[in-house]
Design a protein around this nucleic acid. Structure first.
Length: 671
RNA sequence: GCGCCCGUAGCUCAGCUGGAUAGAGCAUUUGGCUUCGAACCAAAGGGUCGGGAGUUCGAAUCUCUCCGGGCGCACCA
């Protein structure tokens, strides 16, 4: 509702500016005054115009105020306009009528045409998911929730995919470990998998340790370094070629680990629509089509001299182009190698092919699709060579969001530059590298986990996690710890509840704490992970918001009503005078804040920053808790006041629940 | 050397495309449960927004520079 009023006001101001001063402002700033006593909206537009019109800000503001005042009846919800401070244009809303509109759940819609592809998680299927992967998946899943159609908004058509690098070096490393450290072959690998399953052990945990061991094994014996490096390369080559026992082992392991990843993520309500695998990008020869296209468009060329002689290279974005045009005889040494001199394609080359597919720009190429995993209300598909019909369409996206950590900035920019270079500016413009900083461990946390760390690391504020070293906190372990901590609280608070129900509640709280923790930091902040902060259920946390919702629910239960009923009663309530004064203002402030959800979601989408919504959910809960202490709803004797208090609790609860839902957090019935 | 990110209260972080007196949480101190549940609320202390210069009515926010820290810059993926 706040956004609706804001928009109609802005449109009106723009019209006045055009008619009266003949100016059009690209960005019209609107803010909220520092105190509700000054109004609900403030426009600093007079400052902006002061220089251009050679007039004092206050004089301009006064003119605008009188213009606006004459059209006041046409501005629904606006009560008055006045000049404040050095030249602010402050807007006061009609509290009663606005509250009625909010109670009736009038709000601006969000959405539009076009198919949007969100890629996230994309963990190498060779080890357990850790806290860094959690940040990725939670960011991606939350963003996807902000975009997709639901009961609150029209939304956008969205596909969620999780890219699986099942033929890369990391999987190859696990195969090397199985074959050369554990002496396994194809059939004993099968036996290992069934044995682990029968003894209820996690394959991804097994691989976590094996991956660390094999990484160390490569360089453990100086005399063997070259030989072992060769084993590694040969193994990788076998995976890429396919149709051999080595590749079969890799497929068994990577698929089993992938299934574990899906389980881990499902614990956090994270689901996928499609799992494109590198094996199909190779076997379906996506690169061949991309290569032809790139040569045709002139972004790929054969280098004939210099250090990259014999390679097919692509110019990087920026200065290299100008240098090259000045003296075409000199090789562009800064160019990115796409095809090696031995004829094999690099990672970036494959990625370009993959992204051409995402935008539907790869002629004659598509994956085969097969059902892989069933969620309660949809199927998750996986890429195959042949596939089955019918199947949904992925790819052909109008916009894509790649949730990939900031260390991949350069490769991501290479792909975007390739698209742009090929003339696909639409695609390049709608390619969002949803970049985020890593999750690291504080030295104290690392020590607590039993890792031996160097003096150098000990002095740092955080230490990067490393799968190669087996250094990190596994996602399932963290979640188990959170559930145990929440369970202990629920047990002492609600011994009367059925044990299974208590576990369910503890799980909701644990997921709330974890997802909120990963979302409360803005994307470009490195998270220095510490159990003390992550395991907290107090203060700026998910459970704080959940608790506020539970409190509101308790009020309705004891009042023998519901939130919906309380909100419906507002339509016939006499709200005159009751919203004035300090008491009324504080209630009004709760309504005003509760009316901003749409505005916040729009901001999150526009900036690809879910953290704003997390912050908002917390602020609303804070506002509600403050209200809860100031007003004892059930003891209120005046019926009109009581009805308004109930409705205020209801609107806060409705919007908190919605906000949490977008964050992927459920509200427990009790806690 | 080049590119990207960060530096705001003791600690962890917000501060949106420049706007009114720089805000939260944690920690510390104090007060509040015979009340709709205290996983809560209230109050207090705590800041030369890394340093400097510039742009202008106005800078934590934009520009430049310096200092400090992080991450990238392969014929690895």
């Amino acid at each position: 509702m706040y956004r609706t009023i804001q928009q109609s006001l802005m449109a009106r101001i723009q019209a006045i500016l055009l008619a009266k001063y003949d100016v059009t402002l690209a960005h019209l700033a609107v803010e909220q005054p520092p105190s509700i006593a000054l109004g609900e909206l403030a426009l600093p537009v007079a400052f902006e115009l002061a220089k251009r019109l050679r007039k004092a800000p206050r004089a301009i503001a006064a003119e605008l105020a009188s213009e606006l005042t004459t059209v006041l009846p046409e501005l629904e919800g606006v009560a008055s306009v006045e000049v404040a401070g050095a030249g602010y244009l402050n807007i006061r809303l009609d509290r009663a009528s606005t509250i009625r509109r909010i109670a009736a759940d009038q709000h601006a819609d969000i959405g539009g045409p076009g198919f949007r592809l969100v890629e996230h998680t994309s963990i190498n299927p060779n080890k357990a998911a850790h806290i860094g992967h959690l940040r990725n998946a939670i960011l991606g899943d939350t963003f996807q929730r902000l975009l997709r159609p639901d009961a609150f908004k029209t939304g956008y058509a969205v596909g969620v995919q999780n890219y699986i690098d099942n033929t890369g070096v990391q999987v190859a490393d696990i195969v090397v470990g199985l074959v050369h450290l554990e002496g396994k072959d194809l059939s004993s690998t099968r036996e290992l998998l069934t044995e682990l399953m029968e003894t209820n052990q996690r394959i991804d945990y097994y691989c976590w340790d094996l991956y660390a061991r094999v990484s160390q094994w490569y360089t453990a014996d100086p005399a063997q370094i070259a030989a072992r490096k060769q084993i590694r390369l040969d193994t990788l080559h076998s995976l890429e070629t396919g149709n051999n026992d080595t590749a079969e082992i890799a497929d068994l392991i990577s698929t089993a680990v992938l299934r574990r990843h899906l389980e881990t993520m499902q614990r956090l309500s994270i689901e996928y629509d499609f799992l494109p695998r590198e094996s199909e990008i190779l076997s379906l020869h996506f690169w061949d089509a991309a290569r032809e296209l790139m040569l045709e468009k002139g972004v790929l060329y054969l280098e004939t001299t210099g250090k990259n002689k014999g390679c097919y290279v692509m110019r990087r974005a920026g200065s290299a182009e100008e240098i090259a045009t000045e003296d075409t005889n000199l090789p562009d040494e800064d160019a990115k190698v796409i095809v090696r001199s031995n004829g094999t394609v690099t990672y970036v080359g494959k990625d370009i092919a993959y992204h051409l597919w995402k935008f539907g720009l790869l002629p004659g190429k598509d994956f085969g699709y097969a059902g892989f995993h069933e969620y309660p209300d949809h199927t998750c598909w996986i890429s195959t060579v042949d596939g089955q019909d019918p199947h949904p369409t992925f790819g052909k996206a109008d916009a894509i969001y790649n949730v990939i950590d900031s260390r991949q900035n350069d490769p991501q920019n290479n792909v975007i530059a390739a698209l742009r270079g090929m003339g696909y500016t639409e695609a390049a413009d709608h390619y969002t590298h949803f970049s985020y900083e890593m999750v690291a461990l504080t030295p104290r946390c690392a020590i607590d986990l039993g890792y031996v760390i160097s003096d150098e690391d000990r002095a740092k504020s955080y230490i990067e996690v490393s799968g190669r070293k087996g250094f990190g906190v596994k996602a399932d372990d963290l979640l188990d710890q959170l559930i145990a901590a929440a369970k202990a609280e629920v047990d002492t608070r609600h011994p009367e509840i059925d044990p299974a129900e208590r576990v369910a509640i503890a799980t909701q709280i644990a997921v709330g704490a974890l997802r909120y923790f990963m979302l409360r930091f803005t994307r470009n902040t490195v998270i220095a992970f510490d159990f003390k902060d992550a395991l907290s259920f107090e203060g700026e946390t998910g459970p704080y918001v959940q608790y506020a919702i539970v409190r509101a629910a308790n009020i309705f239960r004891k009042a023998n009503t519901t939130g919906a009923e309380s909100l419906a009663s507002v339509a016939t309530l006499d709200l005159s005078n009751i919203l004035d004064g300090e008491e009324g203002s504080s209630l009004w402030e709760t309504w005003l804040l509760a009316s901003k959800l749409t505005l916040l979601i729009e901001q999150c989408i526009a900036t690809a920053e879910p953290a704003y919504l997390a912050k908002y959910a917390f602020q609303l809960a804070q506002q509600f808790n403050n209200f809860y202490h100031r007003h004892h709803v059930l003891n209120e004797t005046d019926p009109t006041r009581k009805a308004l208090l109930l409705a205020t609790a209801a609107v806060a609860q409705r919007e908190m629940t919605r906000a949490l839902n977008f964050l992927g957090i459920e509200a427990p019935p009790v806690m």
